[in-house]
Protein backbone atom coordinates (compact mmCIF):
# COMPACT_ATOMS: atom_id res chain seq x y z
CA UNK A 1 0.00 0.00 0.00
CA UNK A 2 2.75 2.42 1.03
CA UNK A 3 5.95 1.74 -0.90
CA UNK A 4 9.08 3.68 -0.02
CA UNK A 5 12.03 2.82 -2.25
CA UNK A 6 15.63 3.97 -1.82
CA UNK A 7 14.52 7.33 -0.45
CA UNK A 8 17.14 10.06 -0.10
CA UNK A 9 16.34 13.45 1.39
CA UNK A 10 18.17 16.52 2.60
CA UNK A 11 17.29 19.32 4.99
CA UNK A 12 19.20 22.57 4.60
CA UNK A 13 21.60 20.74 2.31
CA UNK A 14 22.31 18.09 4.94
CA UNK A 15 21.61 14.46 3.95
CA UNK A 16 19.24 12.95 6.52
CA UNK A 17 17.60 10.05 4.69
CA UNK A 18 20.11 7.83 2.94
CA UNK A 19 18.44 5.15 0.89
CA UNK A 20 15.44 4.20 2.99
CA UNK A 21 13.31 1.33 1.73
CA UNK A 22 10.10 0.22 3.40
CA UNK A 23 6.91 -1.45 2.28
CA UNK A 24 3.72 -1.40 4.37
CA UNK A 25 0.98 -3.67 3.11
CA UNK A 26 -2.77 -3.03 3.34
CA UNK A 27 -4.17 -3.88 6.74
CA UNK A 28 -0.75 -3.75 8.40
CA UNK A 29 0.80 -1.82 11.24
CA UNK A 30 4.54 -1.27 11.11
CA UNK A 31 6.61 0.25 13.89
CA UNK A 32 9.72 2.31 13.34
CA UNK A 33 12.16 2.67 16.20
CA UNK A 34 15.50 4.37 16.19
CA UNK A 35 17.84 6.64 18.14
CA UNK A 36 17.34 10.38 18.47
CA UNK A 37 18.34 12.17 15.31
CA UNK A 38 18.11 9.04 13.15
CA UNK A 39 15.69 10.74 10.75
CA UNK A 40 12.29 9.42 11.91
CA UNK A 41 10.54 12.77 11.99
CA UNK A 42 12.32 13.74 8.79
CA UNK A 43 10.84 10.66 7.13
CA UNK A 44 7.37 11.66 8.31
CA UNK A 45 7.77 15.23 6.99
CA UNK A 46 9.14 14.00 3.67
CA UNK A 47 6.14 11.69 3.32
CA UNK A 48 3.74 14.54 4.17
CA UNK A 49 5.43 16.96 1.78
CA UNK A 50 6.67 19.67 4.10
CA UNK A 51 8.48 22.59 2.44
CA UNK A 52 12.23 22.57 3.08
CA UNK A 53 12.53 18.78 2.98
CA UNK A 54 14.11 18.02 -0.35
CA UNK A 55 13.90 14.58 -1.89
CA UNK A 56 17.12 13.88 -3.75
CA UNK A 57 16.40 10.32 -4.81
CA UNK A 58 14.03 7.37 -4.61
CA UNK A 59 10.26 7.09 -4.75
CA UNK A 60 7.17 6.85 -2.58
CA UNK A 61 3.83 5.52 -3.77
CA UNK A 62 0.47 5.20 -2.03
CA UNK A 63 -1.73 2.64 -3.75
CA UNK A 64 0.57 2.94 -6.74
CA UNK A 65 0.19 6.71 -6.91
CA UNK A 66 3.35 8.83 -6.93
CA UNK A 67 3.04 10.62 -3.62
CA UNK A 68 6.10 12.80 -4.10
CA UNK A 69 4.54 14.46 -7.15
CA UNK A 70 1.67 15.86 -5.05
CA UNK A 71 1.64 19.00 -2.89
CA UNK A 72 1.07 18.39 0.83
CA UNK A 73 -2.68 19.07 0.83
CA UNK A 74 -3.29 16.67 -2.05
CA UNK A 75 -1.35 13.95 -0.24
CA UNK A 76 -3.77 14.38 2.65
CA UNK A 77 -6.72 14.10 0.29
CA UNK A 78 -5.12 11.00 -1.23
CA UNK A 79 -5.34 9.45 2.23
CA UNK A 80 -2.10 10.26 4.04
CA UNK A 81 -2.26 11.45 7.64
CA UNK A 82 0.66 12.66 9.74
CA UNK A 83 0.33 12.61 13.50
CA UNK A 84 2.87 15.22 14.58
CA UNK A 85 5.50 14.60 17.23
CA UNK A 86 4.89 18.20 18.37
CA UNK A 87 1.34 19.26 17.46
CA UNK A 88 1.18 22.95 16.59
CA UNK A 89 -0.81 25.58 18.49
CA UNK A 90 -2.95 27.91 16.36
CA UNK A 91 -4.34 30.87 18.32
CA UNK A 92 -7.59 32.25 16.94
CA UNK A 93 -8.67 29.09 15.09
CA UNK A 94 -10.91 26.71 17.00
CA UNK A 95 -10.37 22.97 16.78
CA UNK A 96 -13.83 22.66 15.30
CA UNK A 97 -13.15 25.19 12.53
CA UNK A 98 -9.74 23.65 11.85
CA UNK A 99 -11.05 20.15 11.50
CA UNK A 100 -14.17 21.02 9.57
CA UNK A 101 -12.12 23.11 7.13
CA UNK A 102 -9.72 20.18 6.72
CA UNK A 103 -12.43 17.57 6.26
CA UNK A 104 -14.29 19.59 3.67
CA UNK A 105 -11.12 20.60 1.85
CA UNK A 106 -10.25 16.91 1.49
CA UNK A 107 -13.75 15.98 0.40
CA UNK A 108 -13.75 18.75 -2.18
CA UNK A 109 -10.42 17.59 -3.58
CA UNK A 110 -11.80 14.07 -3.86
CA UNK A 111 -14.95 15.29 -5.55
CA UNK A 112 -17.15 14.27 -2.61
CA UNK A 113 -20.00 16.22 -1.03
CA UNK A 114 -18.94 18.49 1.83
CA UNK A 115 -20.11 17.70 5.35
CA UNK A 116 -22.89 19.92 6.66
CA UNK A 117 -22.48 21.57 10.04
CA UNK A 118 -24.76 19.03 11.69
CA UNK A 119 -23.11 16.05 10.02
CA UNK A 120 -19.68 17.26 11.10
CA UNK A 121 -20.75 17.87 14.69
CA UNK A 122 -22.18 14.37 14.93
CA UNK A 123 -18.98 12.91 13.57
CA UNK A 124 -16.63 14.78 15.86
CA UNK A 125 -18.78 14.28 18.96
CA UNK A 126 -18.52 10.51 18.70
CA UNK A 127 -14.77 10.53 18.12
CA UNK A 128 -14.00 13.13 20.77
CA UNK A 129 -15.96 11.16 23.34
CA UNK A 130 -14.13 7.98 22.46
CA UNK A 131 -10.79 9.72 22.90
CA UNK A 132 -11.71 11.59 26.05
CA UNK A 133 -11.64 15.18 24.74
CA UNK A 134 -14.60 17.34 25.75
CA UNK A 135 -16.50 19.44 23.23
CA UNK A 136 -15.55 22.45 25.35
CA UNK A 137 -11.91 21.79 24.59
CA UNK A 138 -12.64 21.42 20.90
CA UNK A 139 -14.25 24.85 20.86
CA UNK A 140 -10.96 26.33 22.06
CA UNK A 141 -8.16 27.35 19.69
CA UNK A 142 -6.17 24.47 18.20
CA UNK A 143 -3.95 22.94 20.89
CA UNK A 144 -3.61 26.25 22.77
CA UNK A 145 -3.28 25.51 26.47
CA UNK A 146 -3.57 21.76 25.86
CA UNK A 147 -1.29 19.49 27.88
CA UNK A 148 1.14 17.30 25.97
CA UNK A 149 -1.19 14.31 26.32
CA UNK A 150 -4.25 16.31 25.26
CA UNK A 151 -2.45 17.41 22.12
CA UNK A 152 -1.78 13.79 21.22
CA UNK A 153 -5.39 12.83 21.85
CA UNK A 154 -6.38 15.73 19.63
CA UNK A 155 -4.23 14.30 16.84
CA UNK A 156 -6.13 11.05 17.23
CA UNK A 157 -9.47 12.85 17.07
CA UNK A 158 -8.35 14.45 13.82
CA UNK A 159 -7.25 11.09 12.48
CA UNK A 160 -10.52 9.45 13.42
CA UNK A 161 -12.58 12.16 11.71
CA UNK A 162 -10.40 12.32 8.58
CA UNK A 163 -10.17 8.51 8.27
CA UNK A 164 -6.90 8.31 6.33
CA UNK A 165 -5.75 5.31 4.30
CA UNK A 166 -2.23 5.53 5.68
CA UNK A 167 -1.41 7.07 9.04
CA UNK A 168 2.14 8.01 9.96
CA UNK A 169 2.16 8.58 13.69
CA UNK A 170 5.31 10.28 14.96
CA UNK A 171 5.71 9.44 18.64
CA UNK A 172 2.02 9.77 19.29
CA UNK A 173 2.62 7.62 22.38
CA UNK A 174 5.24 9.94 23.92
CA UNK A 175 4.15 12.00 26.89
CA UNK A 176 1.02 10.00 27.56
CA UNK A 177 -0.01 8.69 30.95
CA UNK A 178 -0.96 5.03 31.19
CA UNK A 179 -4.68 5.60 30.70
CA UNK A 180 -4.14 7.97 27.79
CA UNK A 181 -1.80 5.46 26.19
CA UNK A 182 -4.60 2.88 26.25
CA UNK A 183 -7.08 5.36 24.82
CA UNK A 184 -4.73 6.36 22.01
CA UNK A 185 -3.81 2.74 21.33
CA UNK A 186 -7.50 1.87 21.09
CA UNK A 187 -7.88 4.76 18.65
CA UNK A 188 -5.12 3.33 16.49
CA UNK A 189 -6.56 -0.17 16.71
CA UNK A 190 -10.00 1.09 15.71
CA UNK A 191 -8.43 2.37 12.52
CA UNK A 192 -7.06 -1.09 11.72
CA UNK A 193 -8.85 -2.35 8.64
CA UNK A 194 -8.00 -4.40 5.58
CA UNK A 195 -7.80 -1.23 3.47
CA UNK A 196 -5.74 0.90 5.86
CA UNK A 197 -2.18 0.93 7.08
CA UNK A 198 -0.28 2.54 9.95
CA UNK A 199 3.34 3.50 10.38
CA UNK A 200 3.99 3.95 14.07
CA UNK A 201 7.16 5.82 15.03
CA UNK A 202 7.99 5.22 18.67
CA UNK A 203 10.73 5.03 21.26
CA UNK A 204 8.91 2.69 23.58
CA UNK A 205 8.07 -0.94 23.38
CA UNK A 206 5.13 -0.31 25.74
CA UNK A 207 2.72 1.01 23.09
CA UNK A 208 3.43 -2.10 21.02
CA UNK A 209 1.85 -4.24 23.75
CA UNK A 210 -1.44 -2.53 22.90
CA UNK A 211 -0.93 -2.02 19.18
CA UNK A 212 0.76 -5.21 18.10
CA UNK A 213 2.74 -4.46 14.95
CA UNK A 214 3.12 -6.75 11.97
CA UNK A 215 6.71 -5.57 11.50
CA UNK A 216 9.26 -3.60 13.49
CA UNK A 217 12.02 -1.63 11.74
CA UNK A 218 15.13 -0.07 13.17
CA UNK A 219 15.99 3.26 11.55
CA UNK A 220 19.58 4.41 12.02
CA UNK A 221 21.31 7.26 10.18
CA UNK A 222 18.58 7.60 7.61
CA UNK A 223 18.15 3.96 6.60
CA UNK A 224 16.38 0.85 7.83
CA UNK A 225 19.16 -1.19 9.42
CA UNK A 226 17.09 -4.12 10.59
CA UNK A 227 13.55 -5.43 10.39
CA UNK A 228 11.75 -8.15 12.27
CA UNK A 229 8.58 -9.20 14.05
CA UNK A 230 7.20 -7.77 17.31
CA UNK A 231 9.96 -9.56 19.25
CA UNK A 232 12.51 -7.17 17.74
CA UNK A 233 11.04 -4.35 19.84
CA UNK A 234 11.65 -6.39 23.00
CA UNK A 235 15.19 -7.11 21.94
CA UNK A 236 15.78 -3.36 21.35
CA UNK A 237 14.42 -2.57 24.80
CA UNK A 238 16.83 -5.08 26.34
CA UNK A 239 19.94 -4.46 24.31
CA UNK A 240 19.72 -0.92 22.89
CA UNK A 241 20.15 0.36 19.36
CA UNK A 242 23.91 0.12 19.19
CA UNK A 243 24.03 -3.65 19.64
CA UNK A 244 20.89 -4.51 17.70
CA UNK A 245 21.68 -2.41 14.67
CA UNK A 246 25.31 -3.46 14.53
Amino acid sequence: MLEITDLHATVDGKAILNGLTLSVGAGQVHAIMGPNGAGKSTLSYVLAGRAGYEVTGGSVTLDGRDLLALPAHERAAAGLFLGLQYPVEIPGVSNLLFLRTALNAQRKLRGEAEASGAEFMKLIKVEAEGLGLSMDMLKRPVNVGFSGGEKKRNEMVQMAVLRPRVAVLDETDSGLDIDALRVVADGINRMRAPDRATLLITHYQRVLDYVVPDRVHVLVAGRIERSGGPELAHQLEREGYVRVAA
Binding site: A48, G49, R50, A51, P71, A72, H73, R75, A76, A77, F81, L82, L84, P87, V88, E89, I90, F98, L99, T101, A102, L103, A105, Q106, L109, V142, Q158, L162
Partner: peptide
Protein backbone atom coordinates in the same frame (compact mmCIF):
# COMPACT_ATOMS: atom_id res chain seq x y z
CA UNK B 1 0.76 26.30 11.39
CA UNK B 2 0.69 26.64 7.60
CA UNK B 3 2.18 23.17 7.24
CA UNK B 4 -0.17 21.73 9.85
CA UNK B 5 -3.20 22.93 7.87
CA UNK B 6 -1.76 21.70 4.59
CA UNK B 7 -0.97 18.32 6.07
CA UNK B 8 -4.69 18.09 6.87
CA UNK B 9 -5.76 18.83 3.30
CA UNK B 10 -6.13 22.62 3.19
CA UNK B 11 -4.46 24.21 0.14
Amino acid sequence: ALFYLQSRGVD
